[in-house]
């Protein structure tokens, strides 16, 4: 709004507009500073990490990265990133497939108790994760799945993230019903209608689901901490913690280096998909 007004009047410098930009830049700096500090610190020699308050290192110490790349407890960084990727990609696949299927049922199919079940599903959004943690652990323990990736991936294939189900239901409700009917007349059953018509048209909702699932799973620490104990199964977030635990103080440099390495995939992922993220949030429906 401010920008528009400025361009219309076109008289002298628009102080309101300049002020706004300066304010935005200041906030941006405050937000970026920790990140910049993280990146800079990953290049600092060991003695400077804690003692020096300066942002830039006195000399570039690449050894931090060399140490970080060796990994933790004999497990290489590649393996750690690989584990994180397996879990994140598994979670994305599970959520996209199961949440869209559940959403299709709620949005389109008629079955008894659909209304109450939908309400129940929504209610689980309000259930704190920590409340189900112990029962869930017991279940997975009895299934013999503790210390495997299953507890982190399997629930995603069961449409347990009610938020994404809800998001997708709302999106699918916006798809004209005539398309389903046309598909029915063309010879599609419910599954074909879903896979050939509804799923392709729900792309924006699916992409939103995929992006958030990936980011949240990649950044997750708590569940991974609880279910994984063997270093070979550690994810990158768990490895970061063990850096502090198992090593002497001099490992702070490598820990920051590893933090940067851990951040890279997610930043790249975000950059690749942020266009879709905006599109997913902005697109309100499909107009044939």
């Amino acid at each position: 709004m401010v920008a528009v007004r400025g361009s219309i009047t076109g008289r002298g410098p628009d102080w309101g507009r300049i002020g706004l930009h300066v304010g935005c830049l200041a906030v941006l700096l405050v937000m970026l500073y920790p990140l910049a500090w993280l990146a800079a610190t990953s290049f600092k020699p060991a003695d400077e990490v804690i003692s020096s308050l300066r942002l830039l290192p006195s000399r570039i110490e690449l050894g931090n990265y060399a140490t970080a790349l060796e990994g933790v407890g004999g497990v290489s960084v590649l393996r750690l990133i690989g584990n994180s990727l397996i879990i994140s990609v598994g979670a994305v696949l599970g959520n996209v497939l199961s949440c869209s299927l559940a959403a299709y049922a709620f949005a389109r199919l008629r079955f008894t108790l659909r209304g109450p079940l939908f309400a129940l599903m929504l209610a689980t959004i309000m259930l704190p994760q920590h409340a189900v943690l112990i029962p869930q652990y017991i279940v997975f323990n009895q299934l013999g799945m503790v210390n495997t990736f299953w507890p982190l991936v399997l629930p995603k294939f069961l449409a347990t993230d009610a938020f994404f189900v809800f998001l997708t239901v709302q999106f699918m409700r916006g798809i004209p019903k005539e398309l389903d009917e046309a598909a029915t007349l063309d010879g599609c059953g419910p599954f074909r209608t879903f896979f050939r018509i509804i799923l392709p048209l729900s792309r924006p909702a699916l992409i939103t689901t995929a992006i958030f699932t990936f980011i949240w799973t990649w950044n997750d620490f708590f569940l991974q901490l609880i279910y994984l104990f063997e270093p070979e199964k550690f994810t990158i977030t768990l490895a970061l913690r063990s850096f502090v635990d198992t090593s002497s103080q001099s490992a702070y440099g490598p820990m920051f280096a590893m933090s940067v390495i851990a951040l890279l995939p997610i930043v790249l992922f975000f950059m690749a998909f942020q266009r879709f993220l905006v599109q997913g949030m902005a697109s309100s429906g499909v107009k044939g």
């Binding site: 004209p176 005539e178 398309l179 009917e181 046309a182 598909a183 029915t184 007349l185 063309d186 010879g187 599609c188 018509i197 392709p200 048209l201 499909v286 107009k287 044939g288």
Partner: peptide, 19 residues
């Protein structure tokens, strides 16, 4: 079921598959 009836329908909104 509709598909076995050997009919074709034109909808008011056309219902073309956008994708």
């Amino acid at each position: 079921p509709p598909k076995s009836r050997d009919i074709a329908m034109v909808f008011q909104s056309y219902a073309l598959y956008p994708h």
